Amino acid sequence: MTPHIVVLGAGYSGLIAAKLAARRTNATVTLVNERDRFVERVRLHQLASGQSLRDLPLADLLGGAGVRTVIGRVTEIDPDDRVVRVAGADPLHYDQLIYALGSRADLESVPGVAEHAYTVAGAEQAQRLRERLEPGSGVVAVAGAWLTGIEAATELAESRPELKVLLLTAGQLGEALSERGRRHLRRVTDRLGIEVRAGARVSEVRPDGLLLDDGSHLAADTVVWTAGFQVPDLAHAAGFAVDEHGRMIVDETLRSVSHPEVYGIGDAAAARMPDGQELRMACATGIPSAPRAVGAVASRLAGKQPRPLRFRYFNQCISLGRRDALIQFVRADDSPVEAVLTGRLAVLYKETIVRGALFVQRHPAMLK
């Protein structure tokens, strides 16, 4: 009997996994996604700032791949009967499940975020922020100053100079970067007129701005929330082993430690390197995890022992508007070295990485 592989989520890791599963196994493959478009999530700050992004229908990206698609929101996973339930569709029975549902903005950890803040974590949310900012000038407070927050703040400040952009961070700006990286980041925020508030911890988001934990109020017309991400509760609700954040706990082959017919990849899985370090949420880790998970599925279906995940970090790529960027080179464990690339060369470097991430969606066979 032909096995059925169901892949949940058509993001940077899920789409690759579905196409490779159809190519490298004799299974029937079904890909489930809430929308019929692929979202270049790493470009959503550009969409929010008023730029246009290319339209990427899943049907085009899957053309000829031999993957069946089901468009709809996953509502439940029943691991006992190996069934996935999707709103508006028939139940899907699986033999192997690849869980790649990604992450979304954390709207629950601070009061008022869900009601009053905007995010750039999804296409609809980025479009909503874009529409909010279109009428004219105002004060925009970006809460959270790691990669997403830095990219959102610099893109808005460059593309929309009529806006007053504030960037809030609980620690110091760029504290995970090298000294050279921090200096360049500070030069860029100064050049773009971004006001940086270090040591600012938000205790509440209100319609007219933010309340900080020291009791002070920071006025803002729009609050952009980039301070953290969360994963869907589906894995936890299904009874899969998850960590304290709800991420599926997987072994060195990306297989669930509690359910051997299930694999987890991308943001929604807690994958670790051999030394125990957990891989961070990023398409840079999600993309290479997809072929490894599919390789493990294919090997086990063929009665072979799969290879364990091997991964090392190389750089962190941060766009700083369209005319500048910062490439922070790192050690294998993601800790920074002093070497950085900045300016126009860094822009070309970052754009090459982003285009490459889309290229492998079209041609995943190039991945090992």
Rank of each mutant, 00 (worst) to 15 (best):
L101T: 01
V224M: 07
G343T: 02
G266N: 04
H245D: 10
E175V: 15
V165G: 05
M273Y: 09
D221E: 02
A100V: 02
G66P: 06
I287Q: 04
E338M: 06
S216L: 07
D190P: 10
A123I: 04
H4V: 13
R41E: 01
D233E: 13
V297D: 00
R54W: 08
V32G: 00
I77G: 15
S49E: 12
A296S: 12
V32T: 08
C317Q: 12
K164P: 06
I287D: 01
F229M: 07
D55F: 11
G303L: 07
R191Y: 06
E155G: 14
E338F: 09
V140Q: 06
M366F: 06
G215N: 13
A365G: 12
V250Q: 03
R43F: 09
V188C: 14
R355D: 15
P308G: 12
V29K: 05
V113Q: 12
S109V: 01
L348V: 07
D90A: 04
C317F: 13
E115I: 03
V67H: 12
T342L: 03
F329N: 03
G215R: 15
H245G: 15
V188P: 15
V139T: 09
A270D: 13
P274W: 11
R344I: 05
T25Q: 11
P3V: 00
R54Y: 12
I77V: 15
A284H: 09
G102D: 14
L185I: 00
G66I: 03
D275M: 05
D213W: 10
G209S: 05
P288C: 02
F359K: 08
T285C: 03
I98G: 06
R35I: 07
A117Y: 10
R247M: 12
G239V: 02
V142E: 15
R24C: 01
A284L: 05
A18H: 03
F229Y: 13
A27E: 06
P288H: 04
G122S: 13
E278R: 00
R310C: 00
P79T: 02
A27Y: 15
A339C: 11
M366H: 08
K350T: 01
G50W: 11
R322N: 10
A65G: 05
I327K: 00
D275A: 03
T69D: 12
A152K: 08
M1R: 15
T119W: 07
L309W: 08
E179W: 09
T75N: 14
A220H: 11
K19M: 06
L47C: 14
R104M: 06
R54Q: 14
T28C: 01
P3S: 08
V42K: 04
L345Q: 14
A100T: 07
A219P: 14
V337E: 10
D36N: 11
Q96T: 05
I77H: 14
R132T: 14
P161V: 00
P291W: 04
L166H: 14
G64W: 08
R23P: 15
I194S: 08
D233I: 01
D243L: 00
Y313Q: 04
A153M: 14
V354G: 12
L185S: 01
V294Y: 04
T2C: 10
S159I: 14
L341W: 13
